[in-house]
């Protein structure tokens, strides 16, 4: 069993000191901020390494940071074998919201990434089937963005009052 601090130390030995940072909010567990370019390699390592064995992606969520003009993806990982947890975050600019897909590493990510694309518009690179999961295919925009403006009509039906 490892704590997030110990996991970061272990990862630093493998990936170098200055790539990953541990961040902490006012409450809750700390998270590791990961550059988007290395999320797939890191995920593969987290899953396969004998001291980490994160075999379960509990949740993958999309975020929109309005002020920073960034989109985020949060990965909550759990190891059922070693019973430890870690949270990863990736942040990308709104203009180029491309994050490598981890669908090939955890199958859970398939639908979760589709939801993150549907709701906040994160583009998951190399996802095998990146299309909307909840909203209809011809919907305009990503509704959980903070600056979302609803379309007035959908297929001729008014969406407002």
């Amino acid at each position: 069993m490892k704590k997030p601090e110990e996991i970061l130390e272990y990862l630093n030995q493998k990936f170098g000191e200055d790539q990953l940072t541990l961040e902490r909010g006012d409450i809750g567990e700390p998270w590791i901020l990961v550059p988007a370019s290395m999320i797939r390699d890191l995920s593969k390592f987290l899953r396969d390494d004998s001291e980490l064995r994160f075999d379960m992606l509990m949740c993958l969520s999309g975020l929109h940071y309005l002020k920073e003009e960034e989109l985020g993806v949060v990965y909550h990982l759990h190891s059922t074998k070693l019973d430890h947890y870690v949270t990863l975050k990736v942040r990308v600019p709104v203009e180029e919201p491309e994050v490598p897909s981890v669908e090939s590493i955890w199958k859970t990510a398939d639908w979760h990434e589709r939801e993150a694309w549907d709701m906040v518009g994160v583009v998951f690179d190399k996802h095998p089937n990146l299309k909307r999961i909840l909203l209809p295919d011809d919907w305009i925009g990503h509704p959980l963005r903070k600056d979302y403006v609803q379309q007035e009509f959908y297929q001729g039906i008014p969406t407002g009052e």
Partner: peptide, 15 residues
Amino acid sequence: YWEHGYHVLKGVDKV
């Protein structure tokens, strides 16, 4: 959902 429900029809009598 009457105010912030972007995905909900505001009354079935619209259709």
